[in-house]
Amino acid sequence: MNLEEIKSQIEANVPGCSLEIIPNASPSGQHSLLVDPEHALTVGSFLRDGASPRFDYCSNVTGVDWPLKETTAKQKTKKIVDGVEKEVEEAVKTSTGDYLEVVYHLFSLEDRQGPLVLRMRTGDRAERVHLPSLTPVWRSAEFQEREVYDLFGIVFDGHPDLRRLLMWEEFTDHPMRKDYVDPDDYEYEPTAHDEVLKRTQAHYAAQETPSGAEEAR
């Protein structure tokens, strides 16, 4: 199975869709295909029914949170300064992330091939978090998309029954996001250290019970 081949197959059959191959540096070599949300449903149906091999089995659906990450790297560029070409070191700010991603792992049952990794990205992490649901194509995505909605806050348009799966319905936040803050549900931590210790101390500071603070060390 060649990802390039599948990409050109999709491009030939789904007009107007934009695809991008996301390389994967790890030894697993599972590169993935970034699909634009507008055409995702058509791409999905094509992969299930028309492509060769047919990817009729959607195994895994999951979300990934990529918060905004700014990195500054020093880059050497050639510039003309006072008419003379010089190599100048410049700090280049690059920002990556600031989107939520949903990942589908597809397999072909007939030809026993896979995984084909599809990805979709939201516009940002706060407002534009809508993506099309692929449950109409692969029913196996039903619970898993609900889980992604629950834990990451991606809203799947076209999902037949989009409710929280694991958390209760009154719950408001999305626990799998990287910036999620745990509630202060401290009870008793005799062996606390690192993060837990900090939280324990914060809890005691908030509660102002000096008798227990000794216990928290």
């Binding site: 005799p190 062996t191 606390a192 250290h193 690192d194 837990v196």
Partner: peptide, 11 residues
Amino acid sequence: CEKECPPKCIF
């Protein structure tokens, strides 16, 4: 061991 303990039960 304190650092590697997964549930952090060692002090």
